[in-house]
């Protein structure tokens, strides 16, 4: 008995679950559920489908190279049963799980670095640019200090993070100055 990987989503296929398709060139495709099978039948590319493992790996959303992955390998050379070896292996697997989890977290953290700052910068920019839809010009005059503060903040963040290019903002017509 073996746990197989789904051809489409990359999830684990437990014995007795999913479906197996053997193409006439003898390549075997396993699917964890009918959803994946249907996508395959419709010739969808798992690399272009957001929710699959293949997409996430390709898009750099998950770790792809790591030493912890090297331990798990399909071996074609059989090793004779050895109780000590198997119990050691089980222990190692447990430990590996812990390490892998930690590394995953570290990877995620690294990936998310700066995202929050960028978000904040965008929010500040939005406030700066659209304040006039909620405040009359006379009211704006009164909150000049706050606006200036925000402007400075944006400037400093921009130098730090580099110019970020969210949706191109339409320039509002300078009607008031006329």
């Amino acid at each position: 008995m073996r746990l197989e990987k789904c051809y489409f989503c990359g999830g684990t296929v437990y014995p007795g679950h999913g479906i197996m398709f053997v193409r006439n060139d003898s390549k075997i495709f396993r699917f964890c559920r009918s959803k994946c099978h249907t996508h395959f039948k419709m010739k969808h590319n798992p690399r272009k489908t957001k929710w699959t493992k293949a997409f996430r790996k390709l898009a750099g959303k998950e770790m792809t190279v790591d030493k912890t992955f090297d331990f798990e390998k399909k071996r074609n050379r059989p090793v004779k049963y050895d109780r000590d070896l198997v119990s050691a292996t089980i222990k190692v697997m447990k430990r590996l799980d812990v390490i892998r989890e930690r590394r995953k977290r570290a990877f995620y953290k690294n990936r998310m670095q700066g995202v929050r700052a960028r978000e904040k910068m965008m929010q500040l920019k939005e406030i700066d640019q659209h304040i006039d839809i909620i405040r009359a010009p006379s009211a704006l005059l009164k909150m000049k200090a706050k606006i200036l503060e925000n402007k400075n903040k944006i400037q400093s963040m921009e130098t730090e993070l580099g110019p970020l290019n969210p949706k191109p903002i339409k320039k509002s017509k300078p009607t008031a100055s006329e």
């Binding site: 331990f71 070896l85 190692v92 697997m93 799980d97």
Partner: peptide, 16 residues
Amino acid sequence: EIMDGRNISDFIDPDI
């Protein structure tokens, strides 16, 4: 054979 969603046989290696 199976533990935590993995095949134990995939990990078995004399110098693990």
